[in-house]
Design a protein around this nucleic acid. Structure first.
Lengths: 215, 215
DNA sequence: TGCAGCGGATACACTTCTGTATCGAAACGT
DNA sequence: ACGTTTCGATACAGAAGTGTATCCGCTGCA
């Protein structure tokens, strides 16, 4: 029963451990392969604890989705802030700033394999479960507009123009990122940051109008 | 035992039915949720038939991957041929030809939800199973170069330039397609062809240098 | 410090899936 | 047409997961 009005600290801690365990289990066995037993066990509990906190597996997974998508937006914000400070401090040319920015973003945002698996699983889960769709879509859309705003500000400060609408731009970026990390892991078993920096740089040449580089 | 040198017609038919059943089951329960029992049953067999044809579930799934990825390339080829004929017959302007081409491709290639689910599941399966990776990657790479060649020919015949390298272009396109179909199904529960035509048109404006339209 | 009840463990009665071993019927060659 | 092979069905033993009912120790509060 998750609808307890009163959430004691103990309860909250248990739920947090179950949540973390669920992320692990879903990442390595898939949403379809995740069992109540497996999750409870990985969290160091028995199934009793699970059923005392959630009515069903689905209920927990919905929580996982919310948390994961929110975390992603937060990461982008951090990366953007870091880049902005970095650039301000160094007073770089546009060319150098873009190059450095790409590098920063790749290093800060390249997802570990766990994360790639988890994201893919959750997307699939949402596709299959009507009930999870609305929440998932809302969270993703929020992330997308958030990221776009960040990019817009960054690019504006560099004096470069984005060539497409926000929606198309974000679809391209998100698809490109996914595609890139998945193929990396499939081919190398890891993400090579240099390759990703190069890839993202080339993508940028496509989606923005770079002003004639003064550097 | 799948390593029988002699494959009788009966055997081949059984394997084909199991393959088709596996695609269904994986699409709607996920690779993790697919069981030998479930697949055999959907194919109208008992598990006896399964174990007589495959040593394990993994062996069957590898077959599914090969078949699915090959089918996708074939579909693109059909769409491209159809478009080329269409255009030749009508002697259209570049602008009209691009518009028509986008429409044709969207209508011919928009994947049903089943297919979206299946593709995502198989990609995940390959990520998780070392043994399936090489085959999956090879098949995908082949599809990508195949599609690129088709596009290159089409665009060349229209006198438009692709702005990025083949690799980047294909990464953008594949990611964009995936992203688009998944979000469509998440938000609407279906793919709206008009929306996709519009989206793909806008993407084209980004990835190609359109010569000044004479029409 | 004592006790009410919360929260997690345990027990129980299923169900579902697995892999192997064995059996019988359909398919095939001569 | 008949014997042989092949291939799918069935039977079996066991593993793993499910949800519910019950129990009991810890925690928090007077």
């Amino acid at each position: 029963m998750s609808d307890h009005a009163t959430t004691t600290p103990r309860r909250a801690a248990t739920r947090a451990r179950l949540l973390a365990a669920a992320k692990d289990v879903i990442a390595d066995r898939g949403a379809g392969g995740a069992t109540v037993e497996g999750i409870a066990e990985r969290a160091g509990f028995t199934r009793g604890a699970f059923y005392s906190n959630y009515a069903s597996l689905d209920e927990l997974i919905v929580d996982v989705i919310r948390e994961v998508v929110e975390t992603r937006l937060a990461q982008v914000r951090v990366a953007a802030t870091q880049f902005a400070q970095h650039r301000e401090a160094d007073g770089l040319t546009i060319h150098a700033a873009l190059e450095g920015g790409v590098r920063d973003f790749v290093h800060l945002l390249q997802p570990p394999m766990q994360e790639v698996l988890l994201q893919s699983e959750l997307r699939l889960y949402a596709l299959r479960h009507e009930g999870a769709r609305a929440g998932y879509v809302a969270a993703v859309r929020e992330t997308m507009t958030g990221v776009y705003e960040i990019l817009e500000t960054l690019f504006a400060s560099l004096g470069v123009q984005i060539r497409a609408s926000p929606e198309i731009t974000m679809d391209i970026l998100m698809g490109f990122f996914d595609q890139g990390s998945v193929m990396s892991y499939l081919e190398l078993g890891r993400v090579d940051p240099d390759v990703q920096v190069d890839r993202l740089g080339r993508l940028l040449d496509v989606i923005i109008d770079r002003s004639p580089s003064p550097g």
